[in-house]
Design a protein around this nucleic acid. Structure first.
Lengths: 194, 194
DNA sequence: GGACAAACAGAATGAACATTCTGATACAGA
DNA sequence: TCTGTATCAGAATGTTCATTCTGTTTGTCC
């Protein structure tokens, strides 16, 4: 019975992810989201709750997308170093595609995190640790294949890669040119191979 | 003649720097600044202009402080690698001092930067390049002293250090423990010595 | 000591925002 | 085709914010 929903919650959430990851939580207004999704306030609030809850779902979705798009492949045993390189290259590509104005929801969230919001901090930490872990697994494959230094501490290196990846995004956002970003990727990979 | 100003603009600006660097531009209200400085709206607006202009001066001051406190020493020729380590250690220390809730005005600004605000982007890029350059100079001294790999590309490595430093702050903000952050610093330095 | 002008505290203003409300709409089921 | 109800667009509400205004205070110079 009754009227059917005129929008797809999943695609609406995707739009919200785009907005939040480009502008962060506080700079993104519900008005922005209504406009970008084409969904009425009623629909947004009814489906996602309030802004805060929508954000949490967006963060969840963002992490999921990042995993599927980039990090899952690190768990496969083949061509591990190439996969790591690909992840960094994609980030650089993203950053240089100026018209898309891509940001990073993790960095935005980390910076805007209220000191007392332990719950979101925990969620974010979980996602970042997952990234480090994926890097470490990839590095271990690469190590077994002789693609990186035999004595590489893959756990520590995974954390370093995570850190450098975020730094790369910060520099990209600041408008550093592609050559510089590519150079950082190159140095990073070089430090793994010794 | 007439009444004298009851506050010191320089210390007021310092407070503003603290607020902006911990919470970023948009999450910091003029009310916050009035409260934290103890200066009246009249004094703030009269001395610094509007919020935007105050922010620009805060960014300038932040960069200056960072240079004096951390990066100037890299231009001295002695003990270069130790200086680089000290800079990273101080960052880690800052991040782990939870009660201070220190952030990073550069990262906040990079992330919040409107895509069309080329002026602020330029300013920020200038500051970040200065950091890269300081690292490169320090690395060159270190190279001459045999503290790092003889074939190190100091320019590229300087940019990598800059990137990693920002990433370190992002992880610190997310609540990664000291051991992990120290590990990242260790790996970073290890990658320089080969 | 008195007068002036700049500095003060805080009220006033107008815009933006998150959230709720309202009256109109349109679709499933009879 | 008709009814009922969930959905819609956008108006209403109450809060927060940046900025300006106002009436008061105070330090300096004559």
């Amino acid at each position: 019975m009754v009227r059917t929903r005129a929008f797809d919650p999943s695609t609406a959430l995707s739009r919200a992810v785009d907005l939040f990851s480009s502008k962060g939580y506080s700079e993104t207004s519900m008005e922005d989201i209504v406009r970008a999704t084409g969904v009425s306030r009623y629909g947004i609030y009814g489906t996602f709750g309030n802004k805060r809850e929508l954000f949490e779902q967006a963060l969840e979705r963002y992490a999921e997308g990042m995993g599927k798009q980039s990090f899952l492949r690190l768990l496969e045993p083949d061509a591990a170093l190439a996969h790591i390189r690909a992840i960094f290259d994609e980030r650089v590509e993203d950053m240089c595609n100026r018209d898309e104005n891509r940001g990073c929801l993790f960095i935005h969230t980390a910076m805007q995190l209220a000191p007392d919001d332990l719950e979101t901090r925990g969620v974010l930490q979980k996602f970042m640790k997952r990234i480090s872990k994926a890097f470490a697994v990839g590095l271990e494959s690469a190590r077994e294949r002789g693609e990186v230094k035999a004595d590489l501490d893959v756990k520590a290196a995974g954390e370093l890669l995570t850190s450098t990846m975020f730094g790369l995004v910060v520099l990209g956002r600041t408008g550093f040119d592609r050559a510089t970003l590519d150079g950082i990727v190159e140095s990073t990979l070089a430090s793994l191979t010794g």
